[in-house]
Design a protein around this nucleic acid. Structure first.
Lengths: 214, 214
DNA sequence: GTCTATACTACGATAGAC
DNA sequence: GTCTATCGTAGTATAGAC
C-alpha cells in the first residue's frame, strides 16, 4: 500500500523519507547484489540508526516487498506507455515496442529485476499484495498476444499459452544473460540486448500465419 | 584442484569427506537458495562442528568455488556425452541433443545452476581456475555452431557470434524461467522446458540456409 | 517521531588443547 | 583431524530516553 496515502502536510515528509529509504536500498542492492542488502548499510548512508528504519518498514522483508511490488507496477507503466495495454494501438507495434521497453527497463533496473525475475534472497517470498501487479501484467501480456493473433500476425490456430511461455523465456533469457554476464553495458550496446530484435523476429516468424511460406 | 589428487590409501577418506561436504552444501543450497548456504548448517547435518570444515575448505567461498567449477565440468561432460564436442557426430543431432541435455542438467541441478548462471551470492566471484571450464565450454559451443554452419544447417554468411549470443539467451531463458517460476517441475513436464523444442526450432529456422524460402 | 542503548542471534574464521 | 573456546562482526529487533 506504500505510496497510496493522501499526501497531506503531515504525511508528506514521511512519504519522502520512505522514498529515500527505498532509493538507498536500491543503491545498495545494485552495488552488492539483491541479497546483499542490510538495514545497517541503508541507515549508514542515510545518516541515521538502523532502528529508525522500523518507523517506516517492518523489517528488511517489507523493504524487499515494496521494491518487488513497485517493480512490477513500473513494468506495467512501461508497457502501458508503449501502447501494449491500451486496446487502440496496432498490436504488432505495441508488441515490439512493449517488449523492447520491458527489456530496457529491466536491464536499467538490475536490483529490481533480480528480485522480480529470480529468487536471490533466501527466505523472502513476496506478499500477495506485492504479487498482484505481477499477476495483472501476466494477464495483460496474454491479452496482447490474443490481439496479435486476432489482427492476423499469428497463426489462427496458434497455441497461445505455449507461445506465451516461449515469449517469457526469450525475453527473460535476454534480460538474464545481459544482467548476469555483462551487467554494466547499456541497453543500446549490450551484448545480449542487441540481439533482442533477432529474438523477437524468431518468435514472430515461428508463430506467424501462412506457415507454407516458411 | 579438488578431485585431482591421486587416490592413495591416505587421501581416500579425506576425498570422501570433501565429497560429502559438497553434497551437503548442495542440499542446503537447494532448500535455502544459493545464498542461503551457511557453514554451520553444513556442519550440523554432517554431525561435526563448523571449524572442522576448515580442514577441507578455506572458508565458504572455497565451497562455492568448487561447486562452480564442478558444475561447468559436469556440463562439459553432458555435452560431450551428447556428441556435441566430439567432431564425428552429425552436428544437427549433436546440437539438438546437446542443448536438450544441457537444459535438463541445469533444471535438475538448481543449486549449481544458480551459482553458474546468475550472481546470487554477494561478494562471491569465481576464481580463474573455477572459471576455466566455463571458458572451455564456451569455446566448444562456438565450435559446434561452426560445424553446424559448415554442414549447411546454417546460412553460409551467418553472423556466428551474434547467433551464439542469441542461442545462449534462448537456452538461458528456458532454464531461468523454469527454475524461477516452477522450480519443482521435472524436465519432461516443465512449463518452460516443454517449449524448448519450439525454441530450438525458432533459432534454427532463423539462421537456416536459403532464406528466400522464408 | 526520532534517537541511543542494548538484547539477542547468528555467522565466518582463528587459536590452541586433545 | 576434530574438538572447545573465542574473537570480531553483522544484522534484526525491542525498550525506553529525549
Amino acid at each position: 500500500m506504500t505510496g497510496t496515502v493522501v499526501p497531506d502536510r503531515r504525511g508528506r515528509r514521511r512519504q519522502e523519507t520512505i522514498e529515500q529509504v527505498l532509493a538507498v536500498a536500491v543503491e545498495v542492492m545494485t552495488e552488492q547484489g539483491a541479497a546483499g542488502l542490510t538495514l545497517g548499510e541503508v541507515a549508514r548512508r542515510m545518516g541515521i540508526r538502523p532502528p529508525s528504519l522500523y518507523g517506516y518498514f517492518d523489517g528488511k522483508h517489507a523493504l524487499y516487498d515494496a521494491l518487488f511490488e513497485r517493480g512490477w507496477r513500473a513494468l506495467q507503466g512501461v508497457l502501458e506507455q508503449a501502447g501494449a495495454i491500451a486496446d487502440g494501438a496496432d498490436p504488432l507495434t505495441a508488441w515490439r515496442g512493449g517488449t523492447t521497453a520491458l527489456v530496457r527497463w529491466a536491464v536499467e533496473h538490475p536490483a529490481h529485476s533480480a528480485l522480480m525475475f529470480w529468487r536471490p534472497v533466501p527466505g523472502f517470498t513476496p506478499s500477495p499484495e506485492a504479487y498482484a501487479p505481477a499477476v495483472a501484467l501476466d494477464a495483460e501480456s496474454r491479452a496482447l498476444l490474443v490481439r496479435l493473433r486476432d489482427a492476423g500476425h499469428l497463426a489462427a490456430d496458434v497455441d497461445l499459452d505455449r507461445a506465451y511461455r516461449a515469449w517469457t523465456a526469450l525475453v527473460g533469457g535476454v534480460i538474464s544473460q545481459q544482467l548476469s554476464n555483462a551487467p554494466g553495458e547499456p541497453f543500446e550496446t549490450g551484448a545480449f540486448t542487441t540481439v533482442l530484435p533477432d529474438v523477437m523476429d524468431m518468435w514472430l516468424d515461428h508463430h506467424r500465419a501462412n506457415p507454407s511460406a516458411r
